[in-house]
Design a protein around this nucleic acid. Structure first.
Length: 550
RNA sequence: UGGGGUAUAGCCAAGUGGUAAGGCAGUGGAUUCUGAUUCCAUCACUCGCAGGUUCGAAUCCUGCUACCCUAGCCA
């Protein structure tokens, strides 16, 4: 239920509660969501967003939105808007919206402070040389010949770097730690590099940029972040995170980094590289294609922020790599939509039904519930007449075992209308069924309390002369997970189906969601109107334990 | 081969020395004018494996095994 959002606890909460008890941060809890503006947010980011924002809420703290924009060559302002839209759409509001690039001056000063302490030096090694000097996983590295430069020389060289006197790659600033550390991140990591690039925020003010490992702890410290939550792959970087803060020494109570496992989902991919590939190769329409696991894609698909937040709450937060079954996400969506969306009659692969004993030229109005589980959502009137369309799946000439919808000789209820009994299936020369003949029983009209006999099946229908032709789109999973565990692109993940709805769907507005009787939850997509036909995207199907096999 | 992590049901996940929460999926049943929803029941004699400590171990100790991360001037 959406009321459960953010109510679960996890190991990060335990850490925070211990810190609260010990008074480590003076009772404060400040988190942050720090995306690099180099792409669209996906549901994996949603997990991080929910974690950071709800954790702050839970302890009466704050959560900042901070752009980790320390690499001008990969970032772009175009992503900023989408990130803010997505975070807000999910239902969160940041305390402050900040840019790491606004701290460049402080970071530069921190680097100078490190040089002054003899804890950083300018290195002239090329990238290739640096690689060989770094050593391997099993062999220690070698100290750079530039490691012993004097303090004055380092200071002046670093100033020259800042002043643009060197080409990209000519020099870097390195932390002086330990070339023989078993943790490669501690083998004199680069903390500043030269990049003659225009930065979206600072323009050409800087030509040297701090590396993540140096910048991130400082960003956190400047903002007074108490708990810096990131993903597992940064565990090895934590000693460096702590080193930077300790050696710069400007913050008495530095933030602590805590790592958790990123989200993986079955039948999809979360890698930005692969997602971008799908967009670039036109496998999908764009970042907001309804099949994409991006926030924009999920939004266009019709998922609600409540469902996504509920999902993030239910999957939990831990440190083991895991792949969550996408069925859980779908469950969350069904549960949320089931309590807030109106139902409509829509038939796919229609079959014409003629009710032979119903008067010709007459239309009566049937009153139908908008949401059977939520009576307060009221009713609507739907036309009914002699000729109706029913769903292709609701008739079988030769019923399979256990089938209890319409077949010759069987009686079913037309939802909101009458009982009908199939008397005949009319075929063309090729043997295809063109129409079905039925008779109805006037005393079984819906709402009149007929108790004479029961029928097992209830099917939906649309009056033929007032039916509105629409197009529905069904989405299959983006990726197929085969037995080998390999994930590959599902090439046929969109199916368009011609369907007919009751006339009330004429008044639909883009973004309106409905349950199409027994089919699933659908959303009207403003971008997908084809000619006069409104197009509906299937958000998620309904659970069904009976599959029709013809 | 160094270092850092993680192993609890088909999938997630609580649990931190006192006798295995919860959710998803599944199964059986009840209700149903949606084969939906709802409801009830059921679903780990056992916690990666092997030893050990203890009255008592998923929890502590020892030794193994498997998987993930890590050698960008990306984040």
């Amino acid at each position: 239920m959406s009321e459960n959002n953010g109510t679960s606890t996890n190991f990060i909460h335990s850490i925070i509660e211990k810190d609260l008890e010990s008074g480590k941060y003076g009772g404060k809890v400040i988190t942050r969501f720090p995306p690099e503006p180099n792409g669209y947010l996906h549901i994996g980011h949603a997990k991080s967003i929910c974690l950071n924002f709800t954790t702050a809420q839970k302890y009466g703290g704050k959560c900042n939105l901070r752009y980790d924009d320390t690499n001008p060559v990969k970032e772009d302002v175009e992503y900023i808007n989408s990130i803010e839209e997505d975070v807000r759409w999910l239902g969160f509001e940041w305390d402050e919206r900040l840019w790491a690039s606004d701290y460049f001056e402080t970071m530069y000063n921190a680097a100078v402070a490190l040089i002054n302490k003899g804890k950083a030096y300018v290195c002239d090694l090329t990238a290739d040389e640096m690689k060989t000097y770094r050593g391997t996983l099993t062999e220690p590295g070698k100290e750079s010949p530039y490691r012993s430069r004097s303090l004055e020389e380092n200071l002046s060289l670093f100033a020259d770097m800042k002043d643009g006197k060197y080409a990209e790659g000519a020099k870097v600033l390195r932390a002086k730690i330990d070339m023989s550390s078993p943790n490669i991140n501690m083998r004199d990591p680069i903390i500043y590099r030269i990049a003659h690039a225009v930065h979206h925020n600072t323009g050409d003010e800087w030509c040297i940029y701090p590396m993540y490992d140096f910048a991130h702890p400082i960003e956190d410290a400047i903002e007074g972040i108490t708990h810096s939550i990131c993903t597992l792959e940064f565990e090895d970087h934590r000693p460096l995170y702590d080193w930077c803060l300790r050696e710069v020494g400007w913050w008495p109570t530095p933030p602590q980094q805590i790592e958790f496992a990123r989200l993986n989902l079955t039948h999809t991919v979360m890698s930005k590289r692969l997602l971008k590939g799908l967009v670039d190769d036109c496998v999908v329409e764009g970042w907001d294609d309804p099949r994409m696991p991006t926030i924009a894609g999920l939004r266009r698909r019709g998922y609600t922020p409540e469902a996504i937040r509920d999902f993030c709450d239910r999957i939990g937060v831990a440190k083991s790599n895991s792949t969550v079954d996408v069925g859980l996400l779908e469950h969350c969506v069904r549960e949320d939509l089931g309590g807030r969306v109106e139902s409509r009659n829509v038939v796919e692969n229609p079959i014409k039904v003629i009710i032979t004993n119903y008067p010709e030229g007459i239309l009566e109005e049937m009153e139908m519930e908008n949401n059977r589980n939520v009576p307060e959502m009221g009713t609507r009137r739907v036309p009914f007449g002699r000729e109706i369309l029913i769903d292709g799946d609701d008739f079988m000439e030769v019923p399979s075992k256990g089938y209890f919808r319409l077949y010759p000789g069987n009686e079913v209820r037309l939802k909101g209308a009458y009982f009908i009994t199939c008397t005949d299936a009319i075929k063309d020369e090729q043997g295809n069924i063109v129409e079905i003949h039925c008779t109805y029983d006037p005393q079984t009209r819906s709402g009149e309390g007929f108790e004479g006999r029961k029928v097992k099946g209830t099917i939906h229908w649309v009056e033929a002369t007032t039916a509105l032709p629409i197009i529905v789109r069904h989405y299959d999973y983006l990726m197929t997970d085969d037995e080998s565990g390999e994930s590959r692109i599902n090439p046929d993940s969109v199916t368009e189906i011609n369907a007919f709805s009751e006339p009330s769907l004429t008044a639909v507005r883009p973004g309106d969601r409905f349950q199409f009787f027994r089919h699933g939850y659908y959303i009207a997509d403003s971008r997908l109107t084809q000619g006069d036909h409104r197009v509906f995207n299937r958000i998620v199907d309904l659970k069904s334990s009976f599959k029709v096999t013809k």
